[in-house]
């Protein structure tokens, strides 16, 4: 298990246990973390799973995937350098402690 912390737009922090192999979007839904919608179920079709990876973690989570940029272009909230589609961040053992920040709006 790895720990993932979601920081809501209002600063509320929620830390949950996640299984490596799952992704940051699914983990949020499974644990009832508000602020991620994930309408398309991770098919990279909806951009309602937008998150900002904490500065300390961007190296571990890696580059955006092919096509992620285009979807993010149309995310409801501001897109920053650390913006990712959380459904495309697959959790690995070395992401234990990962922190992601959530935008105010998803749709």
């Amino acid at each position: 298990m790895v720990k993932v912390t979601y920081v809501a737009a209002d600063g509320t922090r929620t830390t949950v246990d996640a299984a490596p192999g799952s992704n940051v979007m699914q983990t949020a839904l499974d644990n009832d973390v508000d602020g991620i919608v994930g309408e398309c179920g991770g098919a990279m079709m909806c951009a309602t799973c937008h998150c900002y990876v904490d500065d300390d973690w961007t190296e571990k989570t890696g580059e955006r995937h092919d096509g992620e940029d285009d979807m993010l272009d149309c995310a409801a909230d501001e897109v920053k350098e650390t913006s990712r589609l959380s459904c495309q961040i697959k959790l690995t053992e070395d992401m234990d402690g990962l922190i992601v920040h959530l935008p105010e709006e998803q749709a």
């Binding site: 990279m44 951009a47 096509g67 285009d70 979807m71 272009d73 149309c74």
Partner: peptide, 12 residues
């Protein structure tokens, strides 16, 4: 087809 940008621009 494989053009998420145009798709999302259109939706918006």
């Amino acid at each position: 087809v494989n053009d998420a940008k145009t798709h999302m621009q259109t939706r918006k």
